[in-house]
């Protein structure tokens, strides 16, 4: 055959397409539950989905970690069955929604303050110092304020470079929520949000970008989702909490923060930054699933609710190994109770 016959080729392709459309074996009749949103808890969610699909083979999940903002938008347009977000939805958006949206807290996470200094000394920071660093008021590591609370460490006279996230993120929301609480000045100049106007520093994309920047730039400091600081073996600062103790970030110290926060509300849009507990780590936040109170598809909603219940009970055991903080029992009870509102 010298020239492939165009028509035969075309017919072959058309037949193949028809076969794919109608003739291909179709055994996927299980309901597919679609979700979209936060990337901060994605490693844990992915784990939950695969584990749960083994427990209940009659359901499948499809989750797109497109970011909290994207998750909120898709939920508003009802293109997904659930959204996920690291920051509570704004009132304006909630009002624009076609139905009432519930915030269901799943786990909490912490931001670690990681830095690059010769010798990687363990450092302590007070809330004022953290705020001053990110407001651009501390320019060098041998600043007397740092030396006063870290007397046993000889700090080098190295320029201090702030690294922050350039992309909008839940990690940034948790961090700026904390700064806005401890520093009125920060609240006035920058405020809290998934992306803010940083008074100083350089922006890097993603947790991996910030970690990479800190690793390669001596004298730099930045905030990271706890798991990334642990994986990159970066030194992490102990932060003074309102009780006066210096606490290192860990799933336990975050759960402690959850326990001491005001949890006796039916609205779970709670900030747990700067919590009161004696060993509570102060830079922490919740991450939520967003669900409609009256979901349009009953069959899917039933499956989804069963999944959420499982996450809040047995599923919580998966959190700590991935450096997320499980919810304390008291809060879990309240959340499970509130799930009854969904019908």
């Amino acid at each position: 055959m010298r020239i492939p016959n165009a028509w035969n080729l075309f017919l072959l392709l058309a037949l193949a397409l028809l076969w794919l459309m109608f003739g291909a074996p179709r055994n996927e009749t299980r309901p597919l539950i679609n979700g979209a949103g936060a990337s901060f808890p994605y490693p844990l969610y992915a784990r939950w989905f695969t584990t749960y699909e083994r427990l209940d083979p009659s359901v499948r999940f499809n989750y797109q970690a497109i970011g909290s903002g994207g998750g909120q938008q898709q939920l508003l347009h009802q293109t997904v069955d659930f959204g996920a977000s690291d920051s509570p939805m704004r009132e304006a958006l909630l009002r624009a929604a076609p139905g009432k949206i519930l915030h269901i807290p799943m786990v909490a996470g912490a931001d670690a303050l990681a830095y690059n200094l010769p010798g990687s000394p363990p450092l302590r920071f007070t809330a004022d110092i953290v705020a001053d660093i990110f407001l651009g008021r501390i320019h060098s590591w041998d600043d007397p304020r740092l030396a006063r609370i870290n007397p046993e460490i000889r700090l080098p006279s190295l320029p201090l470079v702030v690294v922050h996230r350039s992309d909008g993120s839940g990690t940034t929301y948790i961090f700026t929520d904390y700064l806005s609480k401890v520093s009125p000045e920060w609240a006035r100049i920058a405020g809290r949000g998934t992306a803010v106007r940083w008074p100083t520093g350089i922006g890097a994309k993603g947790n991996e970008g910030v970690a990479g920047q800190i690793r390669s730039l001596p004298g730099s400091i930045g905030y990271l989702e706890l798991a990334f600081a642990v994986q990159n073996r970066l030194p992490v600062a102990a932060i003074q909490n309102p009780s006066g103790n210096y606490v290192l970030p860990s799933p336990r110290s975050v759960t402690e923060a959850l326990e001491s926060s005001a949890l006796d509300r039916s609205d779970f849009r709670i900030s747990i930054a700067n919590a009161e507990g004696p060993w509570a780590y102060p830079i922490a936040g919740l991450t939520w699933l967003l669900l409609y109170q009256n979901p349009p598809n009953q069959e899917k909603a039933k499956k989804l609710l069963a999944f959420v219940r499982w996450c809040l009970t047995d599923g919580q055991a998966f959190a700590a190994p991935l450096d997320y903080a499980p919810l304390p029992p008291r809060l879990r009870e309240r959340v499970l109770e509130s799930l009854r509102e969904i019908r």
Binding site: S166, D167, G168, T194, A195, G203
Partner: peptide, 22 residues
């Protein structure tokens, strides 16, 4: 450090939560 049009799009689009921002 600087910033470009394309960079701010890729950075902030996914997490833009307010309508004005979007």
């Amino acid at each position: 450090p600087g910033y470009t049009l394309a960079s701010v799009l890729v950075n902030e689009f996914a997490e833009a939560t307010s309508e004005e921002h979007l």
